[in-house]
Amino acid sequence: MTGAEGQSGGAAVPAAPPAPDEVKTSRLLGTLGVGGAVAGVLLVIAFGLTLPTIEANKARELEVAVKEVLKAPARYETLYVVGGALARKVPDGTDPKKIERVFLGYGTDNQRVGFAMVSAEAGFQDLVKVIFGYDPKTKQLLGMKVLESKETPGLGDKIEKDQAFVSQFAGAQAPLVGIKTGKRSNPREVVMITGATISSKAVIRIINSALKRLGPLVDAYPQEDKG
């Protein structure tokens, strides 16, 4: 009997007595069809109503993050990684959301401030997603913000919340080196959080590997904008 329950599509019912079953099958299909149509309409309406807000939320969130790690630039533009180089536009026919992006920030004087990059790797518990600002001219970081993490509350999540840790990244020299305790002796060092070494190291590793991957592209991006 359990088999009858799992039947998701009425079409799966085997035909036994022809005449009444014909009616029944059509009715089953009809009901499902009507139901599906109603559901579809409801969903489309809801989707239409909420989509702008959702997109706006996402954009705002990203904007806040980019501005934070690029030291509040006047404006920023989105660049796409296309064929091993950065480009302003995506090739036609591809979904821009599926392409890795880098954000280029400009100061009030229309001078480039730096690039913001997003990257994610495994942390202590699960993936850690980080955005950071980077100035290719000085090879310095401008700031770092953890976008997503499930690190241990009270310990690992200090990578998000501990200002002493987060603030070190502004002005740090790439590539970064994590140190255990004490004072930073050079700008490449980042003092890790006591008791949350793995999470701290994950952030450093994410930044280093993102720079290894995206740094050449950023360096190769034309120095001056034409226009």
Binding site: A4, E5, G6, Q7, S8, G9, G10, V13, K24, R27, L28, T31, L32, G35, G36, A39
Partner: peptide
């Protein structure tokens, strides 16, 4: 109809 009860519920 009874046969597609569960499916309809899940749909809803």
């Amino acid at each position: 109809p009874n046969e597609v009860r569960i499916t309809s519920y899940i749909l809803i």
